[in-house]
Amino acid sequence: MSDNCLFCRIARQEIPAHVIHEDDRVLAFLDIQPVRPGHTLVIPKQHYPYYEDMPADLAAHIVNLGQKLGRHMKRLYGVERVGFAFTGIHVAHAHAHIIPMHHVQDLTSTQYIEQQDLTFKMPPQPPQEALATVAAQLRGEMAGSS
């Protein structure tokens, strides 16, 4: 783990997070600036700057967890589709975003935007109580299945 990496610090529990799932290899927690309620990040506990640096079995473990979370999110949020993407844009620690998609634009590429030179901003951060409620709902869904 890296001493100053934000996600390594979250994995070491030095920074609080609304945890959805934890095992010996990965940690899943709510994004504090969610695109939609339930927007979850899955990180390997070991530091890998890029997703392609991870061992294939670890990447598969993250994808499998994402699939399980996606099925629960569909039920919980009444959505037809859940987006999954490995990224590393804002934090140089491999991570996956799992996002319940209420609209097709909830997870997309800027290549689909006709206007150029747009200014983007981070989504607002919900109150901690709202994040805690969402995390508890998702943990409950995960606990009720195998």
Rank of each mutant, 00 (worst) to 15 (best):
I98Q: 00
R81K: 11
Y77M: 14
K68N: 05
G78K: 11
M101A: 03
I99Q: 13
L76T: 04
A60K: 08
I113S: 00
M73C: 08
L107V: 05
R81Y: 01
P100S: 07
H90R: 05
A92G: 01
T87N: 10
E80H: 05
M54P: 06
I98M: 02
A60Q: 11
A94R: 04
I113P: 00
F120A: 03
K121F: 05
K68E: 12
R71K: 14
Q111H: 08
M122F: 08
A60I: 06
K74V: 08
F120Q: 00
E52R: 14
F120M: 07
V63C: 08
A59C: 10
I99E: 05
I113T: 03
L69V: 15
A60S: 15
M73I: 03
H72W: 02
L107C: 15
H90N: 11
Y77T: 00
Q111A: 15
D53G: 07
Y77P: 01
G88K: 03
L65I: 07
L107Y: 06
F86P: 07
P55M: 08
F86S: 11
P100T: 11
T119W: 03
V63I: 14
Q115M: 09
V91E: 14
T110N: 06
V104E: 13
T110R: 02
P100L: 09
A59I: 01
R71Y: 12
T110W: 02
G70F: 04
G78R: 11
L65C: 06
T87S: 08
T87P: 01
T110K: 01
Q67V: 12
T119R: 10
H103I: 01
G78T: 06
A56M: 09
D106V: 04
H103T: 05
M122L: 14
D53R: 05
M122E: 06
P55W: 09
Q105L: 10
F84T: 09
V82D: 03
H72P: 00
G83V: 02
L76E: 12
M73D: 09
V79K: 09
G66F: 02
V91D: 13
K121M: 01
K74G: 05
T108Q: 08
A60W: 05
T87Y: 00
G88N: 10
H95M: 02
S109F: 10
Q115E: 12
P55E: 13
T110Y: 09
M122R: 11
K68I: 05
R75N: 06
Y112A: 10
S109P: 06
D106S: 02
Q116S: 06
I62Q: 12
V104A: 14
T87C: 04
A92L: 08
V104S: 13
A92I: 02
A56T: 14
A92Q: 12
I98K: 07
Q67Y: 11
E80D: 14
L58W: 00
S109V: 12
Y77G: 07
I98D: 01
H72M: 08
E52H: 15
L76V: 13
M54Q: 07
L69C: 03
D53P: 09
H93P: 06
I98F: 12
H61C: 05
Y77E: 13
